[in-house]
Design a protein around this nucleic acid. Sequence first.
DNA 1: TTGTAGGCGTTATCAG
DNA 2: CTGATAACGCCTACAA
Lengths: 339, 339
Amino acid sequence: MNITSKDVAELAGVHPSTVSRVIHEDPRISNKTRGKVISAIKKLGYTPNAIARGLKTKRTNTLGMLIPDITNPFFAEIARGVEDAASKNNFNVILCNTDDKLQKERIYLEILRTKRVDGLILGTAHLQDKGVLELEKRHFPFVLISRNTESLDKNCIAIDDMTGGIMATEYLIKLGHRRIAHITGPLKTKSALDRLKGYKIALAESGIVFREELVEEGDFRIKGGYLAMKKLLKLNPPPSAIFAANDLLALGAMQIIQKKGFNIPDDFSMVGFNDITLASLVYPPLTTIRQPMLEMGNLAVKILVNLINNQEEIQERIILSPKLVIRKSCNNFKERKNK
Amino acid sequence: MNITSKDVAELAGVHPSTVSRVIHEDPRISNKTRGKVISAIKKLGYTPNAIARGLKTKRTNTLGMLIPDITNPFFAEIARGVEDAASKNNFNVILCNTDDKLQKERIYLEILRTKRVDGLILGTAHLQDKGVLELEKRHFPFVLISRNTESLDKNCIAIDDMTGGIMATEYLIKLGHRRIAHITGPLKTKSALDRLKGYKIALAESGIVFREELVEEGDFRIKGGYLAMKKLLKLNPPPSAIFAANDLLALGAMQIIQKKGFNIPDDFSMVGFNDITLASLVYPPLTTIRQPMLEMGNLAVKILVNLINNQEEIQERIILSPKLVIRKSCNNFKERKNK
DNA sequence: TTGTAGGCGTTATCAG
DNA sequence: CTGATAACGCCTACAA
């Protein structure tokens, strides 16, 4: 049987409500009773029951976090940022891997609602889903992270994907590349769309005509980068540089490039996006567009906690700036010799 | 205001306990009332309150998971395995990053106890701590993952670290290496100690004398591998091969080796441990000892759920077998030319 | 400064 | 097959 505040009260010779007051550091309690209660608590090894408390206070101090996959270093870093900030604010985080599957998202959302989490961090795909839209209707506190959409543009924290796309492409153009390919993310996501938009804008600004054949849709994963690059390698002539919509795609692309015996950056220049830890560790270290993942996680929680505490809706929309991190995966354009 | 079973009952013209029965699919309920209740639930958008339920049933269907750092791919994969299995068994997982800090572990343990999680997955360091020992005394369900210790050897799931250490070292010996260095993990962890033991055994079995100078303690992180290798490079002669106690250490070591202009595997052969996804993506792809992380997470939850459901203590201790994954980071030993 | 009482939303048990 | 009742453990007016 578990020890309750009643047991403590009995041992201390006071009323349970007094125990509650001691725990909540009610200043009115006399030092004498406080002492009695505290020693009783220690003697019994009493731990307050947050469930009972939550029933009364309607607060669980728990957040739900929906992300596609914690195994993806991008989301792992965000998750770390989220958990750190949550912890500092006295919240715990329930981890949910959705694999971007609508079905999973719905189920988790339902469970988390049942468990009465105080708020939600959403880094998952199907934001248009009625499940999410309903959250909004109910004024349930939630923050979108790195998955802002046109329709749901409040309480979101994201990076300026378009500018990031421009930066990556411009950098390659400055190195003299003209035949620049782009491996996109899934085009149902806004990030992927915006990075593609940036790519097009940068080309246009330099008077380079956009070519459909140089764009391949990927999946934000290594496999997709590999497959996309495989197709790009068959073009005649192939591109001299590639802007991949995230680092994993870039890694996949690099894999097949190296497997086919080509050299990076001599034969192909490569730019990624995100700057996951991995990016600096592969060979050659990957030039990429940096998103501050940890910080994004932190900020998301900050906004969310605010939302939870102050009922009024402060609709924040934070767009962070991307940064170009130059490493070793790009070179100046050189005319390709016949191989 | 939130909708309760009482509201549903009212609309359906039944008693709240009937609503509860419908939700729990009590077979005795008539189709007619079931229909009424279900439509009332839908009309009101009722979601049962798991907090209230938990108060009554003393079950939260929530697990706590303590790991050092979700940003570490090794633990990210374990976490994924844990969450998947938990989800399948109707449990949610609260993520806790401890950074292997005693203080953090204690705080989390305390909070999770307060929140009345049904069980705990512990992948964190200070298992000897009184907080953990108390769990045992209270017969609180928990499973140790990848952090078994001498004293706490029950309900743990781990890999055979010693055999892994032997395999790694033997492989290098078979390639002709004799001057083999070992970068260990933190020697307060059993894994690190066991891998070191394996290293020594393999050397002894081949009649190679163990040399203190060839062993450097690391921290299971990239930085530590880098620093340890830096020292090893100063030896005269330096080792021709390195067995690193985990992949991150190996990556750190590879970094400085390549930075100094040496080649892997020509100048140094390298074996890691774990086989994180990264291992196959770096250059050169890392030969390593594979632990089945996802599977370990799955198994841990399986044991834990069992422990939670069947009060009797079935003290399982699962030791999985490591596998050598050969990639491109090792070569046959060659006499080193003067550089 | 402390005790009393009622209720948070469920569910288990007993009736009927 | 369904209703009534009490209880889970805590918190918070209100009373004293």
